[in-house]
Design a protein around this nucleic acid. Structure first.
Lengths: 333, 333
DNA sequence: GACCGCCTGGCAATCGTTTGCGTAATTTTA
DNA sequence: TAAAATTACGCAAACGATTGCCAGGCGGTC
């Protein structure tokens, strides 16, 4: 039904191998033959079958891209960037949504393994050991996780969290809370550690969580925050922060009058929420691009798993101060 | 390197065809042989190569999913639902972002055609005629577009727009505007028509656009709205509505005091914006699910293109009234 | 006891490419 | 001008599955 390499061969009066070479090794053909073949291909509307090609070459030119939750606005810009750079390299992206579930995530890697050249795990929720095991079967690149020997791009959320805490301390806050994200999230443990160490000796910090990183969880934790008597909170991400702000609002707690709130990610939501959310901006699009480049580079490294060099990229973050942070109630100024 | 059907055959001491049958036609094997094969497969960790299978069967078990812009929050829930239902049917999704560009969209369909069983076009920006032409090569399903002979799911935005206009008329508005979306969008023309016909004889309506459906475009159109002297506007989507609200705000125009604003989609943003946006809620997730089901059903219909029956689904929408709509300035009540 | 039919499972062609090998044809070198 | 080197292209074997066809073995029927 579809036009194959054989049809083109007949049309151009050459052998199929010549047609194949016209595309993959043009320099090996006499210019005359080459144009004749290409012309015939054009005339017939020939497009090589990626499937058949994959079978012989062993490369599908597809990449798996697994995220924890597509509807978390943190991911779309990353997916978009990844998709565009993949396409620029003549690759296509399989997207899969792990629903924040390590078991599904593992299953997805296995399912995808047979039809992709590698997979990008974004904000993986599975354990390092398992990632190492999976990466023996299929090249893996990580976003927001570090595992030795596996290429990864991370966002320097430590620096971001430090300046965020610094900002709160400068404003005069002395009782802080960290509304934690998923236990398995690398970013979460990074931020958690940073908060306590940055505040060490200068402020008291309570950790609430772990929480699923969505608005509802943020809303649910509001009461606890109100009770805890803290004057400022850093949340694992914007979703939690925004849910929290809503919750506090309906409890009659003013943000930032009574409690300051800081998020992480700088999703669209942060600018839109009222009060506009102070948050740590992370370069999601850059991460998407870097991840597929790292992965592609890694897979190109040769077939011997043991000799491949895993690249690492760390992307800077920064704090953007908006309207959800202010001095604590009763502060002088 | 990977374990193939041949390895399993050797391990189970049967011919490869028997291994194949153990999976695809289990009833054709003696129970004893079947379990022996399955057991051997399990022991070796055998996973059939989807690529090889695709080559013989002609079915890749992959679906292309093309959206106009992944970072438009309208799409993620749809993608998520589509991906989940596809996976439940043992299919995987290729996601591609057309960047609101008809040329890219067409190119994507062509590029994907060779490695998917069908493609879903979400809010296509290409012309009907071209869609028909493309669908001769590869099964296509449409979201928010109707082309005879091609399966599609649409959202009944006409009804939604009617009640929206009704709501504005009830409030006493007599000078309305429609902030249009992309010219090629079916939804856009549906809404546009509905607005003028619903207001016919009861209110005056100005149409502004077409506009790229994002916040910036909404922001840009604010001044024009202010000048136009209208008291209420319906925007093509939430993004435009929200951008517009920001723009009006910075122009000192109060929403809803001076101008009422209604959006479409009910994305997360609508609830978050201040004032909270009155909007038409559309069932994006249902659309995603319905689209892949329609497509799968269509492709299963048999190989003869001419006998396939294209299913259609129309999904209901409804107006959710929040804080961005109110009576026009100077209204009695 | 010969014949028939079913059940089981092997054989080999096929899907559309790629690619190592071989050999005419052409060019270079001596 | 003959030998050597190179070039251009054909041949056919893979890649890993699926599937139509066929044959041997078995039990049932008359």
């Amino acid at each position: 039904m579809a036009v194959t390499i054989k049809d083109v061969a007949r049309e151009a009066r050459v052998h199929m191998s010549t047609v194949s070479r016209a595309f993959s090794m043009p320099h090996r053909l006499r210019p005359e033959t080459r144009t004749r073949v290409l012309e015939a291909a054009r005339r017939l509307g020939y497009r090589p079958s990626r499937v058949a090609r994959a079978l012989t070459t062993g490369r599908t030119h597809n990449i798996g891209f697994i995220v924890a939750d597509i509807s978390n606005p943190f991911f779309p810009p990353m997916i978009k960037a990844a998709e565009h750079t993949a396409r620029a390299r003549d690759y296509h992206l399989f997207i899969a949504d792990a629903s924040e579930d390590p078991a599904i995530e593992t299953e997805l890697v296995d399912a995808l393994a047979k039809q992709v050249d590698g997979v990008v795990l974004c904000g993986p929720r599975i354990a390092n050991a398992k990632i190492e095991r999976l990466s023996e079967n299929i090249p893996i690149a990580l976003v927001n996780r570090k595992v030795t020997g596996i290429p990864s791009v991370t966002m320097d959320v430590v620096n971001g969290a430090q300046t965020a805490i610094g900002h709160l301390l400068d404003l005069g806050h002395r009782k802080l809370a960290y509304v934690a994200g998923p236990r398995q999230s690398w970013t979460n443990t990074q931020i958690g550690r940073t908060v306590t160490s940055a505040a060490d000796g200068r402020a008291e910090v309570t950790v609430l969580g772990p929480n699923t990183p969505n608005e509802n969880a943020g809303l649910a934790v509001a009461e606890e925050i109100a009770r805890a008597g803290v004057t400022a909170v850093l949340a694992y991400n914007d979703l939690l922060a925004i849910g929290l702000m809503e919750g506090l609002h309906s409890l009659g707690v003013d943000v930032p009058g009574d409690v300051s709130v800081i998020g992480v990610d700088d999703t669209v939501l942060a600018r839109l929420a009222r009060p506009r959310l102070t948050t740590i901006v992370v370069p999601t699009a850059d991460a998407g691009t870097a991840a597929v480049d790292l992965l592609l580079q890694y897979t190109a490294e040769g077939d011997d798993v043991t000799t491949r060099a895993a690249g690492h990229v760390s992307l800077p973050t920064k704090l953007v101060i908006r309207d959800s942070t202010a001095p604590p109630p009763g502060a002088g100024s």
